[in-house]
Design a protein around this nucleic acid. Structure first.
Length: 145
DNA sequence: GCCAACGTTGGC
DNA sequence: GCCAACGTTGGC
C-alpha cells in the first residue's frame, strides 16, 4: 500500500497507531482493498521519495470501511456521485506494526524480484494498492534484520 | 522538471 | 462502443 510521506507517512501511522486508508480513487486499487481480510499484513510503501520503497509493516484490522472522505465537499477526495445510501468507495482500517530499520528501496526490489513476482516493480505501474504473493512477502520479511 | 504509462472523460 | 484529448501518477 503506497502513500506519499508528505501526505501520510509511516511516522504518522506510528503516531496514530490506527488509520482509515482513505482517498483511494481507482477502481482496481479499490478492488484489491475489497479482497483484504482482517489479520492480513501489508507493506507500507513510500512513493515520491528519494528513494521510494517499503518502509514498514501494518495489519488490516477492519474491512469494508466506508471511506468518509468521499462525502466531504471541501475535501480533495470528494466524490459528488457518492451518496450515503450508495457509497462508491470502501477501504480498510490499518494498524501500525513496525517500521523497518532500513528502507527497502524500489531498486533493491527490482534486483530481487521480477515484475511477475512483484507488481510494484512492473514498469508504469501506478496502482496505490497491490497484492503480493505470500512467498515474496516472506522473502522480503526474511531479508529484514 | 520531464515524461512514460497509465486512467478517465466525453463527443460522436 | 470507440477513441482522442486530457489529467494524474510517480520514478528518475
Amino acid at each position: 500500500m503506497k502513500s506519499e510521506p508528505d501526505v501520510y507517512g509511516i511516522t504518522d501511522l506510528e503516531r496514530d497507531r490506527v488509520t482509515i486508508w482513505d482517498g483511494v480513487r481507482n477502481y482496481q486499487a479499490r478492488n484489491f482493498l475489497k479482497s483484504m481480510q482482517v489479520g492480513d499484513l501489508a507493506f507500507f510503501y513510500h512513493s515520491n521519495t528519494h528513494p521510494p520503497g517499503i518502509v514498514g509493516l501494518m495489519q488490516i484490522v477492519q474491512v469494508q470501511v466506508i471511506d468518509p472522505s468521499q462525502f466531504d465537499p471541501n475535501g480533495e477526495y470528494y466524490d459528488p456521485k457518492s451518496t450515503s445510501t450508495a457509497p462508491r468507495w470502501h477501504t480498510v482500517k490499518v494498524e501500525f506494526v513496525r517500521t523497518f530499520s532500513d528502507l527497502i528501496s524500489l531498486a533493491t526490489l527490482r534486483d530481487r524480484f521480477t515484475p511477475e513476482q512483484l507488481l510494484v516493480v512492473k514498469q508504469g505501474n501506478r496502482l496505490s494498492v497491490m497484492p503480493i504473493l505470500d512467498l515474496v512477502a516472506a522473502q522480503i520479511l526474511q531479508s529484514i534484520n
